[in-house]
Design a protein around this nucleic acid. Sequence first.
DNA 1: CGGTATTTTGACAAGAATCAAGTAGTGTGG
DNA 2: CCACACTACTTGATTCTTGTCAAAATACCG
Lengths: 237, 237
Amino acid sequence: MTNTLPNRSSTSSCNQTGSFLGEIDPAVSGVLKPVERHVAKGGTLFHDGDELTHLYEIATGMVKTSRLFADGRRQVIGFFTAGDFIGMPYAGFAAFSAEAVMETRLHCYPITQVAAAMTQSSALTKAILKALHDDAERHVDHVMSLGRRRPDERVASFLLKCCTKQHEITTSQRTPCVDLPMTRVDIADYLGLTQETVCRVLTRFKRTGIIHGKDSHKLTVNDLPSLQMVAELGACA
Amino acid sequence: MTNTLPNRSSTSSCNQTGSFLGEIDPAVSGVLKPVERHVAKGGTLFHDGDELTHLYEIATGMVKTSRLFADGRRQVIGFFTAGDFIGMPYAGFAAFSAEAVMETRLHCYPITQVAAAMTQSSALTKAILKALHDDAERHVDHVMSLGRRRPDERVASFLLKCCTKQHEITTSQRTPCVDLPMTRVDIADYLGLTQETVCRVLTRFKRTGIIHGKDSHKLTVNDLPSLQMVAELGACA
DNA sequence: CGGTATTTTGACAAGAATCAAGTAGTGTGG
DNA sequence: CCACACTACTTGATTCTTGTCAAAATACCG
């Protein structure tokens, strides 16, 4: 299903190891026994076409999902961080690969157990349904980005999305800091651009003072309103 | 959820009026009472932001879903035909508009009824989950088209998708006929191209003999293998 | 410290969007 | 049934953006 389960109210993204699925409903806490797994930077959770045996919850780190074309072109489908879920609620075969962007720890739930637990807990079923629905919305946002937006707008809204994911409420931070542990190529393959174009856009944002780069993987947003404007209207001051 | 419910085994897309959800499980057939609705060509099922009160099953016709940007750019999210479902399994607000491409008849299920029926029928729940999952896969395919593919490839795979949807198994037809009731602008807005580019690609396909146009909304695929090759590799003979 | 991978910048060319004009199709009212 | 108006589709010429190719600078790792 490849998504974030909803209503994690207070935990935010700072949570460490709690296994969410088992906590959702006392009725299933005894049934769902996550297996812990550790994946090194660049390691693979599963490949496109593999049989999907587990539902993965990310405890720490970051995972990217992607699919390849015959000629080597690659499309990154999504980036997932602590609290996000990757996998299908059904036995089936993966439609994409999943790799760790950085050192990552996972809770792995055998899908057979999840399926069984769902029959006993309507709360779990609802959570999964909601997660699938949120997943669809994320995909629609991605389609919106790729279909009709210029590079500036794509990069700007990508940065904003990273922002809001890292600090639950962006507006509370005047100059939020953004972590970008993935490579420029990853970002480019996510946004349907080349790494050169991503670079150039970021450089332009730096020149106009919208962002400031501590290093290439840690940015500070100096002018959030401008970034939001670029994301929506494409005008780069 | 915006999708096709699975396992419609023998009915194919030729089905006329059967209301699928009520047939899925005897336990819910008494609960789910679809309301019939008729929408004229160009008419609106709901607007972006409207509260979603129903799950819509398309009986006949075609519906397109889309979202607008502030500056008028439009992204078409999907096209839906007989047997497809549009709507959310939860009360909520629409993230896109839905309009009839041609005269369309619908079965409308109040989502409260669907939610209630789901608690009584695990078969229905499973069907909805599967539908959501298929929906996600469709979105991922769309992302793949938009992110890294050239206009030729986008149009070719769009035509192929229309083909397979219209004749369950494309391979059985040597020269399948494709209906394109939507406008060129609709196709362009779906594929993230301009209508001119869509036109030019279609013209090129005609010149190279891959397709033949009876009229602009009815095409014949003369060379299916070539079309498939273009869809995957971008090479236009 | 040396070697490799990643990021950044520049020059150039290909390709798609834009602008513009013309053609075909659709529907309406006389 | 035809003439008209309107929309949709097609084609062409031009512009501009972004991808491609190339190289330098920086960061990363053993």
